[in-house]
Amino acid sequence: MKDSFGREIDYMRISITDRCNLRCRYCMPDGISWIPMEEILTYEEIKVVVEEAAKLGIKKIKVTGGEPLVRLGCPALVGMLKEVPGIEQVTLTTNGVYLAEYAEELKRNGLDAVNVSLDTLDAERFEKITGRDGLDAVLEGIQAALDHQIPVKVNVVLQKEENETEWKALTELARNRKLDVRFIEMMPIGYGKRFEPVYNEVLLKKLKEEYGELVPDTRKHGNGPAVYYQIPGFEGSVGFISAIHGKFCDQCNRIRMTSTGDIKACLCFEERISVREALRVGDREEARRLIEAAISSKPAAHQFEKKEMITEKREMASIGG
Rank of each mutant, 00 (worst) to 15 (best):
Val84Ala: 10
Leu267Gln: 08
Asn223Pro: 00
Met80His: 11
Leu92Ala: 10
Phe248Ser: 03
Ser259Asn: 07
Thr94Val: 11
Met80Val: 05
Ile129Cys: 11
Glu162Arg: 09
Asn109Gln: 12
Thr17Asn: 10
Gly246Asn: 03
Pro216Asn: 07
Val49Asp: 01
Val78His: 11
Gly134Val: 08
Gly110Gln: 14
Leu173Ile: 15
Asn223Val: 07
Met316Val: 08
Lys2Asp: 04
Ile129Ser: 11
Gly190Thr: 04
Tyr228His: 15
Met28Thr: 03
Glu285Asp: 13
Arg219Phe: 02
Gly66Ser: 11
Phe240His: 11
Phe269Gly: 06
Pro75Ser: 06
Arg19Phe: 06
Gly96Thr: 15
Gly86Pro: 09
Leu69Gly: 08
Gly233Val: 03
Met1Asp: 07
Cys74Thr: 15
Asn176Gln: 12
Lys55Phe: 04
Trp34Tyr: 13
Gly321Tyr: 02
Asn200Ala: 03
Val138His: 14
Ile263Arg: 08
Leu22His: 12
Asn200Leu: 09
Arg108His: 14
Val84Cys: 09
Arg7Val: 07
Glu166Ala: 08
Val198His: 00
Phe240Ala: 12
Ala174Lys: 12
Phe234Trp: 05
Arg276Pro: 00
Phe126Trp: 09
Leu290Ala: 01
Asp136Met: 01
Ala300Glu: 15
Asp133Pro: 05
Thr93Pro: 05
Gly321Val: 01
Tyr199Gln: 00
Lys60His: 14
Arg289Val: 00
Glu210Cys: 05
His221Trp: 11
Leu146Cys: 07
Met1Phe: 08
Asp112Leu: 07
Glu38Phe: 04
Leu290Gly: 10
Ser297Glu: 12
Leu22Lys: 06
Ala226His: 12
Phe126Arg: 08
Arg108Thr: 03
Glu172Gly: 08
Lys247Ile: 14
Gly321Gln: 02
Arg132Phe: 13
Ala76Pro: 00
